[in-house]
Design a protein around this nucleic acid. Structure first.
Lengths: 247, 247
DNA sequence: GTGACTTTGTGCATTTGTTCACAAACGACG
DNA sequence: CGTCGTTTGTGAACAAATGCACAAAGTCAC
């Protein structure tokens, strides 16, 4: 049973042992916080694999990933019971399971919109994108950039957005345009069928239900750092900076 | 009276009204989740101010920021009681209060290490960095890049890292190097006195206590998107990958 | 085969974050 | 001056995430 879970191009998925205490709420049942950490574990696992490790304990892996080992075990337990007590986890097997859980056993086509500094940086990221992701195109509205080779592709004009998406089955769009253009680009991506968007423009995008947007925002991160830095300094100097703690 | 709503262009700290129920746990007492959202509110406020809005209700601001209005009110309440019932918040005053809470009333010096594609992109981000942040220098180990003008500064050699930090009182370091160099750079930043680090290199940095590291990781974001995309597709095609819906 | 040792997986208590719903506070208006 | 509609600020219920601590389940040495 549970053969419905097989992945077409590769082998069969290990079936759920019936005696398991937990109903194995795989698939959609993985908590958000766990999903956000899985990529970190995956990278740590790749690093360990390169070093020649065959197995790894939750403690070791937790150190590599920079998290608490209990948390790591609980996270992994959401994917299934893939460890061996007294031994640890088989590195290669866990790589496969985490990849599968994240949906990286298939290849995702990505289109980058905006070939400015940031778009170029992303397209050149090569090494980190290539695992499970493929840049189908990078687009810009500036004609003087069109034709310029960047990373694995050459810049094409943004008018080609729709055709690029349909002909390459692009599912993920990356917005690396100025803020002013972001919403328009976003709308076009959505209209063309893209349902996953990574937004680098510093603005809140509005999208219909069923579209997933994640944002990466430099200035937000800096401001969060500033907050903590301020707090540390205030503490250190015991100086209630403005109204740190009025009576 | 009711002068509490006036905008102090100086810095008169609004005193706690005696009838207040809560002891105003400002300063360090702001929850992490709130701190992470304050920059979003701040940007929305700037946008509203540019549009000429004088006051804004929690509902409007919540829409602009893309959050629930109750959450927004609770978040703002951690900074103090700066709204006016029946009216809303004074935009300019709230900008000031949020900025102050985030520590943006002072200027933070930032050093960027790594003048590759990403470092260049960051240095050129200009518009978004300038509010409260100033790029003191951008450094690289490649001699052929040294002297090249990027954004507001020119590239200097990474050997100058320590002197740049001390002479500019740099408190925030941005790591935009390849993963291989990140830990070394990080150690040097920390040794030179930097206690806030923004890491763009795809690896886990280890730092001593008292140093704050935030990471921005492209591939992690993409992988999280892939997870949700996979889940959506599985749902849509009725292909119950394992146990999509509970029970 | 047995016992000692290691490591997983998880129940549970605690902490942190979110959302609802409403009283208190305010301006406006006559 | 009192009433009315609006909006804040927050208590309380709910939900999510964390971390501890330990039984269960395995390996390994002999």
């Amino acid at each position: 049973m549970t053969s419905a879970a097989e992945i077409p191009d590769t082998e069969t998925v290990p079936e759920e042992p019936p005696g398991g205490g937990e109903p194995a709420r795989v698939a959609g049942g993985i908590p958000e916080a766990t999903v956000a950490r899985l990529p970190v574990y995956l990278r740590a696992l790749y690093t360990l694999a390169e070093r020649g490790a065959n197995t790894v304990s939750s403690d070791e892996l937790a150190v590599c990933a920079g998290v608490n080992s209990a948390k790591l075990r609980k996270d992994l337990s959401h994917l299934g019971s893939y460890g061996i007590r007294g031994v640890g986890y088989d590195v290669e097997y866990l790589v496969y399971q985490v990849s599968r859980a994240l949906g990286l056993t298939q290849n995702w086509s990505v289109v980058i919109v905006g070939a400015g500094n940031l778009g170029r940086a992303l397209a050149n990221y090569g090494g980190f994108l290539t695992r499970g992701f493929q840049i189908s195109a990078i687009l810009d509205s500036d004609p003087s950039l069109v034709g310029r080779p960047i990373g694995p592709v050459t810049v094409r004009h943004v008018t080609e957005l729709e055709s690029v998406i349909t002909s390459n089955s692009v599912a993920i769009g990356v917005i690396a345009t100025p803020a002013g253009a972001a919403q328009v680009v976003c709308d076009r991506l959505v209209a063309a069928g893209v349902t996953s968007i990574l937004n680098f423009a510093p603005m809140v995008l509005s999208v219909p239900d069923g579209v997933d947007v994640r944002k990466v925002d430099l200035s937000i991160e800096l401001q969060i750092l500033a907050f903590h830095a301020q707090r540390r300094f205030a503490e250190r100097f015991g100086q209630e900076s403005d109204s740190v703690a009025e009576a």
